[in-house]
Design a protein around this nucleic acid. Structure first.
Length: 791
DNA sequence: TAATAGAGAATTTTT
DNA sequence: TTCTCTATTA
């Protein structure tokens, strides 16, 4: 094993006098509440830190690390601290540095699960492999794009109809196995039928192919580490000795592979401290196991459980509303958030006619807050306001509206910089220049811009490369030399291979500046020109992105270093110098906080999501409820929940009912608003009505919030844990009104399905095979077979 | 080989 | 509705 090379500059940087102070109460402990203090000072043995939203979790965690260092219990290189995102890791580094009064360079093992795993794996790459083929320490890390392309090739090679069996599905399957730390050999029999019975075989083929490419995917980083630890006790022992203290952030989001990874490393000294909140577990769909946190105490007997329950973020009303909602979930570890803060506004609730009215109203509210026209709230910067949606398609309505009224906004968590097409293309050029054997990169750019090298030419190159055991780039050179390709394509391919050879030589030449080289590659390849000639409206933006990419290179010594960085750190800070309202999904909002939060789209089927409930039943519903809890607890001063009676989905208007979560909100902490109606009076009853013609009945829509129906719904909130399937109040006799969202129906051709939306006499139904829009007269109600509706 | 028309699908997302 | 992917046509 290679020698550890961590710089312990950090230790040297702490003056002895300061270290001696550790015996006395240290300044960094000032201001901690008793629970936080316990979290910082309980250093021996396993600790489960249950940290509710806004309770100072990061502060506790970073102070704990600072405390370990100041006590001299471990050197920076002996502390393993893992997070899920680079952002969280950065923030922790920064805060530790601040606590200790210097920048932290010496915390080499504070990082994401993946970045720490890469470091470990590079040192033991040779232990991964079969027979004579082994992973080399220089392995590359594939992103999801590459992964999918590779799988498509394998599927095509197997002669499988990709229409019936999409590559995405296989990718999801393999990811799922990797999340559960299952190598192809360990996949259980119960999964044997997956993907037309060929899932496991394709998984094995995929792993072989990765090995041949000397590549790993994201899941492999964890999986290979776990496999190495399990198969090589001596290696595991080295790491166990090294990491004297282990800290884990967001423990409720760990999947099985991460869980095993941690357990293996922590089992020696058991100095492991995990921080999490079971109520904020919202990533079950990507493999996170809430059970990991629920059973921590049995995994590590004698574990101390410390609860951080004092909330420093939200008003009492917001906390009470959130707590009341989450109380409907079963099997929680249980926490009671409290605050010293008094007063504040109740959580506001409002219904709208449709999603456009909702966007319009929220836009006006924001303008009012911004202009200081709401005295109780005061004048607010747009940066203090966020809109949190369940699904990204909801963002459209807000973007459209804000664009027309000229309200500046930013979408957080959209396509990330390094995931954009032009950036990936450019990166593929750099990758191929740096590693000429990168076949995936070759395939991506060989005909980009168009060089007259279509499928046929690529096939010729592939055959040549396969037959002679060459990389695609070498194969291409061979094709050029042999003249197997004629005409225009031959000249283009010659130029391409020659250019690439020259650029590769340049990457090895220390005299060539890598930033200039990158620019030259993009220009000489014709890639820049391709976008300059492109007439589409987003072409200028793409050129700007390319410029930015080249600029980002300046922070690195060479192209290799840059590529390594990008593989793992796919985020970029977006400056928030400008005042903008933030729009994002609820998932993206986790860990953030805003004084003013809007939570639109609380409608059954959208939130909670029908799909989530269909797929995982009550578990899905509970995760949706946690998502609602996360949303509410983002708000510091004011939260506003809203729903719309009609929403355009896939181009069709559909009517829907208020979310069942609304019924679960404790009434005492909610203020129901009556929106200004189109016709001068209150309206919103549309939400109660299926079938659009009924909406013309103004009497029915007036003042629904004081109607018996609304009150009844409020009263039923308590009993709703087991959730009865709610039927809408049917006011008119339109045929469509006989159905309601969530009903099970049967269609002659498509079979059984669940109604997702209703518009006039057209239903949007989710069948086994997917979404279909069908006329109501073509389906029969029923099949429900009683108990199979999971909610 | 490249442009184009039509079909089909359509949460949530970090690394 | 809108995007992506495939099959067809020039």
């Amino acid at each position: 094993m290679t020698e550890f090379d961590d710089s312990d500059a950090f230790e040297a940087a702490i003056p002895l006098s300061q270290r001696a102070m550790a015996a006395r109460p240290a300044p960094y402990l000032d201001g901690l509440n008793p629970a936080q203090r316990a979290a910082v000072e309980s250093l021996d043995g396993p600790v489960l830190l249950l940290a509710g939203a806004g309770t100072g979790k990061t502060r506790a965690l970073t102070t704990r690390i600072a405390h370990i260092l100041m006590q001299g219990l471990a050197r920076p290189g002996q502390i393993l601290a893992v997070t899920f995102t680079n952002k969280a890791a950065h923030e922790m580094k920064e805060r530790i540095g601040r606590l200790l009064g210097q920048t932290v360079e010496g915390m080499p093992w504070l990082g994401t699960f993946h970045s720490v795993s890469v470091k470990i794996l590079r040192r033991h790459a040779e232990l991964v492999g079969n027979g004579d083929l082994h992973l080399k320490p220089s392995f590359t890390i594939l992103d999801t794009d590459d992964q999918l392309r590779l799988l498509k090739q394998l599927i095509a090679a197997e002669g499988i109809d990709e229409k019936r069996w999409p590559a995405r599905q296989l990718a999801g399957l393999i990811d799922g196995w990797k999340n559960r730390a299952l190598t192809p050999a360990r996949v259980p029999k119960s999964d044997a039928r997956a993907y037309d019975g060929r899932g496991v075989a394709l998984y094995r083929a995929y792993q072989d192919r990765l090995l041949a490419l000397n590549a790993v995917d994201f899941g492999d980083l964890l999986l290979h580490c776990v496999s190495i630890f399990q198969a090589h006790p001596d290696v595991l022992d080295q790491w166990r000795e090294r990491f004297r203290y282990i800290l884990v952030d967001e423990y409720q989001d760990t999947n099985t592979a991460q869980y095993l990874w941690l357990r293996l490393l922590a089992q020696g000294h058991r100095n492991i401290c995990v921080v999490g909140d079971d109520d904020q577990s919202i990533y079950g769909w990507r493999g996170a196991e809430v059970d990991n946190i629920l059973r921590f105490e049995s995994d590590f007997p004698g574990a101390q459980v410390i609860r951080l329950e004092q909330n420093y973020r939200s008003t009492a009303h917001i906390l009470a509303a959130a707590s009341g909602l989450i109380a409907a979930n079963q099997g929680r570890l249980g926490k009671t958030l409290w605050t010293e803060a008094e007063g504040g506004e109740k959580v506001r609730l409002i219904g709208h006619w449709d999603s456009e009215a909702e966007a319009r109203w929220i836009g006006e509210e924001i303008e009012a807050f911004h202009g200081g026209h709401r005295h109780s709230i005061g004048q607010r910067s747009l940066n203090q306001i966020a809109i949190l949606v369940r699904a990204s398609h909801q963002m459209r309505a807000f973007e459209d509206r804000f664009m027309t009224i000229g309200l500046p906004y930013r979408v957080i968590g959209g396509p990330r910089f390094y995931e954009r097409q032009e950036i990936r293309d450019a990166m593929a050029y750099f990758r191929l220049a740096v590693s000429p054997a990168d076949d995936l990169a070759f395939e991506r750019i060989v005909n980009l811009p168009r060089r007259g090298l279509g499928d046929k030419a690529v096939q010729v190159i592939q055959r040549e490369a396969r037959d002679r055991g060459l990389s695609l780039l070498e194969g291409a050179a061979a094709v050029v030399a042999s003249g197997a390709l004629g005409g225009k394509g031959a000249a283009a391919l010659r130029a391409f291979t020659q250019n690439m050879g020259r650029w590769h030589a340049d990457t090895l030449d220390a005299g060539v500046n890598h930033v200039e080289l990158a620019e030259r590659i993009l220009d000489e390849s014709g890639y820049t020109a391709m976008w300059q000639n492109d007439k589409s409206p987003d072409a200028p933006g793409r050129l700007d992105n390319l410029k930015e990419l080249v600029k980002a290179l300046e922070d690195f010594d060479n192209l290799q270093g840059f590529l390594e960085h990008v593989a793992l750190v796919m985020d970029r800070e977006s400056g928030d110098a400008v005042e903008q309202v933030s729009i994002m999904t609820l998932h993206a909002a986790k860990g953030l906080e805003y004084p003013i939060v809007f939570l639109p789209g609380w409608e059954d089927g959208l939130f909670p999501s029908q799909r989530s409930m269909d797929e995982t039943g009550n578990r899905g519903l509970e995760e949706e409820r946690r998502l609602a809890y996360v949303g509410l607890t983002r708000a510091e001063d004011l939260a506003t929940i809203s729903f719309a009676g009609n929403r355009r989905l896939y181009g069709q208007w559909q009517s829907s009912l208020p979310s069942r979560f609304i019924d679960e909100l404790p009434q005492d902490h909610i203020e129901v608003l009556t929106p200004p109606g189109l016709y001068g009076g209150g309206y919103g009853a549309a939400a109660q009505v299926a079938g659009s013609t009924a909406m013309h009945d103004r009497a029915a829509r007036a003042d629904v919030y004081n109607s018996p129906g609304w009150r009844r719904m409020q009263e039923r909130a308590g009993q709703r844990a087991q959730a009865v399937h709610r039927k809408p109040v049917v006011i008119d006799a339109e045929p469509a009104a006989e159905f309601s969202v969530g009903d099970r129906v049967f269609h002659q051709k498509f079979g059984k399905g669940t109604i997702m939306g209703i518009a006039e006499d057209t239903l949007t139904v989710q069948f086994q095979t997917g979404f279909k829009t069908v006329k109501a007269s073509y389906v029969q109600p029923g099949d429900s077979a009683g108990g199979d509706v999971p909610f």
